[in-house]
Design a protein around this nucleic acid. Structure first.
Lengths: 235, 235
DNA sequence: CATTGATTAATTTGATCATATTCTGGGCTT
DNA sequence: AAGCCCAGAATATGATCAAATTAATCAATG
């Protein structure tokens, strides 16, 4: 629960350490980002500047900057009248996210397959193992974190920074909803295709890896879609 | 030349007016965004907070927020040591941008074709006419603005806000380089496929419109690519 | 003696905060 | 129910502190 730890407390690391030298706005940003990504903030929940200054023990300027950044990334929503909140996905938004991921994830996976070393693949397998353990123990938070890390690791391996950044940003948009959906279903019924992805990558078969990732993505995103009414353009 | 107009000057509109009620950080953001998009800032050029506070006649807080936003969008680059600058594209980056636009633009064009009204198409044609006039008169700035507006209008017509936002964001990344390239070539040798796009859209042929946009995109982006050495990963 | 190198002083710029101002929204009065 | 008022939250400024780049000084060496 280091969520509630103050910025001031985090800043005093040993002099030579790296995290101690990070500016406050960067720390706030990372914390807020993680909160959105893993569903600590519910969809629709308002996000106030003063609330965060108190909660994080920081001044308003760094908080404001972090919020602006997250708004620009689509992780938060500016409601026109100086109000900020966690976006509520509509069925149409989910459709867009599926379309986007269905293209980005396979492409990046194919690139990653061509560049991945044996070490890289071992690290991916480790992440997947931790993910399986989280499913068994029913630890939703760890599940969400490791699932994200698995896909993020593939993005990074692809060595396509701009596209990886785009794919990464999409997670911020469905993070809050994903948490709600998974929370309702329990971790038991959360199948994935990660094993098939790993197999294909080990075999150097980019096409098959891309196919497997695509199925994994669609499978996961459809869960999110089903949590809404119908996929039609109704309101 | 309202670039150099101060924020204070822009803020005093009539009480009921819309632009007068926009917060300063929003105005700064829009101005800076336009500067990046249309190449007023050269690639590699440093962007300082204090320089902007002077230039725009505003305080530091709004300027800082605008800069953070643009960094999050990839329009500016944080250089680690608290310095901010306009990014320099590499050949690999250009390749990524081509891949991304080659997928996003055709898809959105297809969606737009299915939804566009006759009025919408007329507006597009108007934009294209102004673009042609800019080419004749050799007005590079107007050319860049109208060319962007043409594509942006198509994105908006598609009614896919997330994907449109992604496509829109890519322009910020190649804006500065595009200006350099077009500046070297002069406006005369800047062919586009907008007429074919419009024809296909009027005919309701989404597939053909998508194809035409794709050619337009590739044609334009290849100009940018050629301004570098070879596309290889050298250096 | 001149040139180069490094160490340190000075200036510029970024980060943070406390404070003043403006605006929105809800409650209360009429 | 409409309009006014007030509490609270967001916006914006300037001051202050810290970091980094640049300039300058000095010493050592060829």
């Amino acid at each position: 629960m280091n969520q509630r730890m103050t910025i001031a407390a985090q800043k005093m690391g040993k002099p030579g350490e790296e995290p101690g030298r990070l500016p406050a706005h960067e720390l706030i940003y990372r914390q807020l980002r993680a909160m959105v990504l893993f569903g600590d903030l519910a969809p629709g929940q308002p996000v106030t500047i003063q609330g965060l200054t108190d909660r994080m023990g920081a001044g308003m300027t760094p908080v404001r900057e972090a919020i602006r950044r997250l708004i620009a990334e689509g992780a938060l929503e500016f409601q026109g009248n100086r109000r900020v909140s966690v976006p509520q996905l509509t069925a149409n938004h989910v459709s867009e996210l599926i379309v986007a991921r269905q293209w980005l994830d396979p492409y990046l996976t194919q690139c990653a397959t061509e560049r991945a070393s044996a070490d890289d693949l071992d690290r991916l397998a480790d992440l997947d193992a931790e993910l399986d353990r989280a499913i068994e123990t029913g630890d939703l938070r760890i599940y969400l974190e490791r699932n994200y890390s698995f896909h993020k690791a593939i993005y990074d391996l692809a060595d396509q920074p701009i596209l990886a950044n785009m794919a990464d940003g999409l997670w911020l948009r469905f993070g809050p909803s994903l948490r709600v959906v998974c929370g309702r279903m329990g971790t038991q019924n959360l199948p994935d295709k990660h094993k098939e992805v790993l197999d294909a990558m080990r075999a150097g078969d980019g096409e098959r890896a891309a196919q497997a990732i695509c199925e994994d993505v669609v499978q996961g995103m459809e869960q999110v879609r089903l949590s809404f009414g119908k996929p039609g353009p109704a309101t």
